[in-house]
Amino acid sequence: MNKQRAIEISESAIMKHVTYQDTPIYIQHVNEDETARVYPIGNSEQEMTVPLSSLTEHP
């Protein structure tokens, strides 16, 4: 996923279907170094930093 799109999704009030390793995630914050702070939907305690290239947006 490109950085601009990840920022748009993280700032949107509408939930988008994004996955990390086939797990639906919520993008909490996009970092300057092409990574994002994310957590699995329904499990905000499992925050992790992942490369933007590993995120997939689904229609």
Results as ranks from 00 to 15, higher is better:
N31I: 11
Q21E: 13
Y39L: 08
N43H: 14
I25V: 12
E32S: 08
E8L: 10
K3R: 11
I7C: 08
M15V: 07
H58F: 00
E11W: 07
E8M: 11
P24A: 01
A13C: 12
E34N: 13
M15W: 02
I27S: 03
S53Q: 05
R5K: 12
Q21C: 11
I27R: 06
V38K: 06
E57L: 01
E57K: 02
P51Q: 07
V30P: 04
E45R: 14
A13F: 12
D33K: 04
A13E: 14
V30E: 01
T23D: 12
Q4N: 13
L55C: 05
E11A: 14
Y26R: 11
T49P: 10
S54H: 04
N43W: 14
R37G: 10
R5F: 07
I9F: 06
K16N: 07
V18K: 00
M48F: 12
E34T: 05
P24H: 00
S54N: 08
M1R: 00
H58N: 00
G42A: 10
Q28R: 15
Y39I: 08
M15T: 07
I27G: 03
M48H: 10
H58C: 00
K3A: 04
I9S: 04
H29E: 15
Y39N: 13
D33Y: 05
I7Q: 08
E34I: 00
T23N: 08
Y39C: 13
E47A: 13
A13N: 15
V30R: 00
K16P: 03
E47V: 15
E8F: 08
I27K: 06
D22I: 05
T19C: 06
A6L: 05
Q4V: 06
S54G: 09
S53I: 01
M48P: 11
Y20H: 12
K16Y: 08
P59D: 03
T19N: 01
V18M: 00
T49S: 12
I9G: 02
I9T: 08
P24W: 00
A6G: 08
T49D: 12
V50Y: 03
I41D: 04
V50P: 09
A6I: 02
E32H: 07
I14K: 14
I25D: 05
R5C: 05
S44Q: 15
K3S: 09
T56E: 07
Y20L: 06
D22Y: 03
Y39D: 09
K16D: 02
I27Y: 05
H17A: 01
G42N: 11
R37W: 09
T23W: 06
V38T: 09
S54Q: 10
T23V: 11
Y26A: 04
T56H: 03
A36H: 06
T49H: 10
M48R: 13
T19E: 07
A13R: 14
E32K: 07
K16L: 08
V30K: 03
I25W: 07
L55G: 06
Q21M: 13
P59Q: 02
V50H: 05
T23C: 09
I25A: 08
T19Y: 01
G42E: 10
